[in-house]
Write a protein that binds this DNA or RNA. Structure first.
Lengths: 142, 142
DNA sequence: TATTGTTATACTCTATAACTATA
DNA sequence: TATAGTTATAGAGTATAACAATA
């Protein structure tokens, strides 16, 4: 089907372009780097976790996750608590400063996204967006 | 509304996480770097354009776009044609090699995304995705 | 003066390779 | 041997600053 194929290819390009624009928009917002903020938010929502678990959750190499954690640790925003049952592992958790940074950023600056979702989209649109994200997630996990 | 706020915050986090995963997934696919491929696809679809126009279209700094164009030019995939009406400007356009690379990549490797859209999603889901992308684009353009 | 474009430089993000320590 | 984690290194992607040429 010629028309169908064209549509799919266009959708692919649209997706690529839109994702690129969105990433740049997110990055432009002041506050900690996106990857670091994402990790802080994850730790806050799901609690302490090991490097491996965090890497798996974000579909990222453990070495890459280790870098992000190292940067956050140097900034004093997360700390490590050794796993008493397995001395190879350590739980990464938010420090008090990490909590403060997170809520601070959410409230003052990085809240941009949440605010935009509230302000620019109505309830129905948020549902549509959610449905779209579920599909994007599925594509990302293939 | 407490519940409403929580939902919006969660949606924001979901968006952030999903976009991150998707970017990494796209990057993992073999072929030319994502930014370069995106530009090749744009030139193919919309025709020659100046650096400034391309930067505006992708919501990117002209200096950043100049880098991408320079890399593609060095690889022989795009060329510049001076604008006869304005000697500051030049039109960036696909070379024959650029066309070949584009269709080659689309067919063999980078076609992953288009294929996935065909294979993993049905027509209704593609519509939902499209609607979601329109909203994401709106958010990116705020 | 404003616009188009360039080069230099730096930061973020993430990957692969090679390694240590523990299980 | 397998798993958890680290450091070293490199490449992609993009930004800001400072500049040159043209309008």
């Amino acid at each position: 089907m010629e028309a169908e194929q064209t549509t799919t290819a266009q959708l692919a390009q649209e997706l690529r372009t839109t994702v690129g624009r969105l990433v740049r928009r997110l990055r432009a917002e002041p506050g900690p780097p996106v990857a670091q903020f994402t990790l802080l938010a994850r730790l806050d929502r799901f609690g302490p976790a090991s490097i491996s678990d965090l890497a798996t959750a974000e579909r990222m190499r453990p070495q890459s996750m280790a870098q992000t954690v190292r940067d956050l640790e140097r900034a004093g925003l997360v700390s490590r608590r050794p796993d008493p049952d397995d001395r190879r592992r350590a739980f990464v958790e938010l420090t008090e400063a990490g909590h403060v940074m997170l809520s601070d950023t959410r409230a003052r600056r990085e809240g941009w996204l949440a605010e935009a979702l509230e302000r620019e989209l109505d309830a129905g649109e948020r549902e549509t967006l959610h449905a779209g994200l579920v599909l994007l997630r599925r594509l990302a996990d293939i």
